[in-house]
Simulated assay, not measured.
Amino acid sequence: MQLYNKLSAEERAQLIDESGEDRLTISFYQYHHIKNPTIFRNYLFVNWNEQEVLGRIYIASEGINAQLSVPSRRFYEFKEFLDSIPFLKDIRLNIAIEQDNKSFLKLKVKVRNKIVADGLNDDTFDVTNKGVHLSAKEFNEMLADPNTICVDMRNHYESEIGHFQGAVTPDVDTFRDSLDIIEEDLKDHKEDKNLVMYCTGGIRCEKASAYYKHKGFKNVYQLEGGIIEYVRQTKADNLENKFIGKNFVFDHRRGERVSDDVISQCHQCGAPCDEHVNCDNQACHLLFIQCKSCREKMNNCCSDECMSVAALPEDEQKKLRRGRSVSNKIFKKGRSEALRFKK
């Protein structure tokens, strides 16, 4: 029984090219008590590996959080499999705005303590007492209400390239950082304002809305299905789109174009740009915004130092990386001192 990937990302990319088949990028989540996350993880991996599913899926005792891609020809087989799992039957699937056959190149199903790292003690409040879900139409109407405070529950590198007009965009690196900051900033409006939240696909708002109700906020709302579902509904129902820029996504695409507005800048030269890249120096792998001109000039790197390292033979790069922890740099998400025009 195969429980892990046997192909590299490069080998998988070649197979995708050779197949000539289109794939669908999909995301979904569900909070549900899972008695044995490891057994459930293995069950999903075996079945999804056979269905040629690729992606990044987190399993915890509290539920599942999935971003994945599936061959278009096997979508209904994939959906039938989900429906065979009682707590996933008829689950809402967020279909990507822009499709890319190589959005994911491996199948990674991981067991975690939580499906979203929120830093909360779930035993201290009722996680099922969530905010009111809003459709795209209702969300637009709520934004027009002067008593509404709209809050982006995503991180700075996500909202930097796109957000809703007039939204509060906390300058934070992680979801857990935003929770206390938002409560402190809005402490004087717990009863007289509508707290309306949104995120990429809705999962962060599920927990945050319950948390803020526990903290005394009286009028708590959340965008159903997040930005992805909002864009789908605005197109399907011919509604006004109030999101400007790009929606950051956690796969190889790194972003989906929602409007033509470019609201961010290259972190190296300051030119208008909203293309996220990862530094080519694998010992760095910093996520930052880089324009085409700087990409060519810097050889896809964030600094002269990284450019020098990336130019070395691979075996020498591995020697330099050996025994070094770089995770703190990886997750700076554009905060590096080497970037002159970072947010």
Rank of each mutant, 00 (worst) to 15 (best):
Y4W: 06
Q14C: 12
D17S: 14
S19T: 01
D22I: 06
L24F: 10
I26P: 13
I39K: 09
Y43K: 09
V46F: 03
V53N: 07
V53H: 08
V53M: 10
V53T: 04
A60C: 13
G63W: 02
Q67D: 02
S69H: 09
R74I: 03
F78L: 12
E80T: 15
L82T: 04
E98I: 07
K102H: 07
K106M: 00
N113P: 06
T124A: 09
D126I: 04
T128Q: 13
H133F: 12
L134E: 05
T148N: 06
C150I: 15
H156I: 14
E158N: 13
S159R: 09
G162D: 11
F164S: 11
G166C: 08
V168I: 15
T169A: 05
P170A: 03
E184L: 13
D185L: 12
D185C: 08
L186V: 00
K190I: 05
E191V: 09
N194F: 15
Y198K: 09
Y211G: 06
Y212H: 06
Y212W: 12
K215I: 01
K215A: 12
K218S: 14
I228W: 01
D237A: 07
E240R: 12
N241F: 04
G245E: 01
V249S: 01
D251M: 12
R254I: 01
R257C: 05
V258N: 02
D260F: 06
Q268E: 00
C269I: 01
P272S: 00
A283V: 05
C284G: 11
L287G: 12
I289Q: 11
S293F: 14
K297Q: 14
N299G: 04
S308L: 11
A311M: 13
P313K: 07
K319F: 01
I330T: 04
F331H: 08
K333M: 02
S336Q: 07
A338D: 02
K342F: 01
